[in-house]
């Protein structure tokens, strides 16, 4: 009964050769194409460097004014604005201004990138069931696979730095916006769509006049989720050379600096709360037309 005592595996040599084969193949691939891929991402990196410098070079009172204005535009609530200003003042007082700006920079770029890629992908997914069947498991993998696993090939290809960090953040943060765009468009009232059709709407008119506007609350929930997930990746991204609040957290973990870890951790939480409140309030305002005097 040998079969039941030991799992029939392919054997040590075979396994080693397989792993080696894959590793070498990928190494050769990255040696050959690494430079081309790096060049491809070069404009993105320059933009990120420029954007981070911009945030840091701008005098802090102006930055706080900008944040306050954005919070007001998004949430239209004086309390959200007060909270935002107070949070940033506290962060600055505790000496975390520079790291926070670096984090804000990468989160903004990552969110913009996720929206730019995720919404079109979600729209494509909503058009065809086959596309949905293909994309859904890929998104599942992106969300569940441990981040460290995809950090390996990313770092092998692009080394450490801002761009690989950004890619890692996006792999983790893009699924919700894709999913919710797809869902939002699929949930658009069939009768309204039929009406659009009956009045002779073209494909584009249907998409931009009816489907996207009606899916917007869901799409916006996706944006909110994407921002939150991008923030959750800040610490992991710092392991491959992304500057920001993750770096001191990482240092605190390896040196057991309780206070340092706590302070930077709370700064990440503060950012998360601000982003969340502002984007949620904005999303709610998008739906204002849904409440009416009549409950029809």
């Amino acid at each position: 009964m040998e079969l039941f005592d030991e799992f029939p595996s392919m054997g040590r040599t075979g396994l080693r050769d397989l792993k080696k084969g894959i590793d070498f193949a990928f190494r050769d691939f990255s040696r050959e194409n690494g430079e081309a891929i790096e060049n491809f991402f070069d404009p993105l990196m320059h933009f990120m460097v420029w954007f981070e410098k911009l945030l840091l070079a701008t005098p802090w009172p102006i930055m706080i004014l900008v944040f306050a204005a954005l919070a007001w535009l998004g949430a239209r609530s004086i309390w959200v604005v007060v909270g935002t200003v107070a949070s940033f003042l506290t962060i600055g007082w505790f000496g975390m201004w520079e790291d926070t700006m670096a984090t804000v920079a990468i989160i903004s770029v990552a969110t913009a990138l996720c929206i730019g890629l995720g919404i079109p992908l979600g729209i494509l997914m909503s058009r065809s069931n086959r596309m949905q069947a293909v994309v859904t498991p890929v998104l599942d993998i992106m969300q569940t696979i441990p981040s460290f696993v995809y950090l390996i090939p990313v770092v092998m290809l692009l080394g450490i730095g801002k761009v690989p960090g950004l890619i890692a953040v996006c792999i983790y943060a893009v699924p919700p916006i894709v999913r919710l765009t797809n869902l939002g468009i699929r949930l658009v009232d069939k009768e309204v769509l039929e009406a659009a059709e009956a009045f002779g709407s073209s494909y584009r008119q249907k998409l931009f006049e009816v489907q996207i506007p009606l899916a917007l609350p869901n799409i916006f929930a996706g944006v909110n989720q994407t921002i939150m997930m991008a923030l959750a990746m800040v610490v992991i991204a710092s392991m491959i050379g992304v500057k920001g609040l993750g770096v001191p957290v990482l240092r605190a973990v390896s040196n057991q600096y309780l206070a340092l870890g706590l302070m930077n951790g709370l700064a990440i939480v503060a950012l998360a709360v601000i982003f969340d409140r502002v984007s949620q309030e904005y999303g709610k305002r998008l739906q204002k037309h849904r409440q009416g005097g009549h409950g029809a």
Binding site: D189, E191, V192, E194, A195, E197, A198, F199, G200, S201, S202, E209, V210, P213, L214, L216, H289, R290
Partner: peptide, 22 residues
């Protein structure tokens, strides 16, 4: 041609109104 036909020659009213809520 069909789009043109629907735009200009035949319009429709729906049971559940099918208005654009936004």
């Amino acid at each position: 041609e069909l789009r043109d036909f629907r735009r200009n020659r035949m319009s429709m009213v729906f049971q559940k109104f099918a208005l654009l809520p936004h």
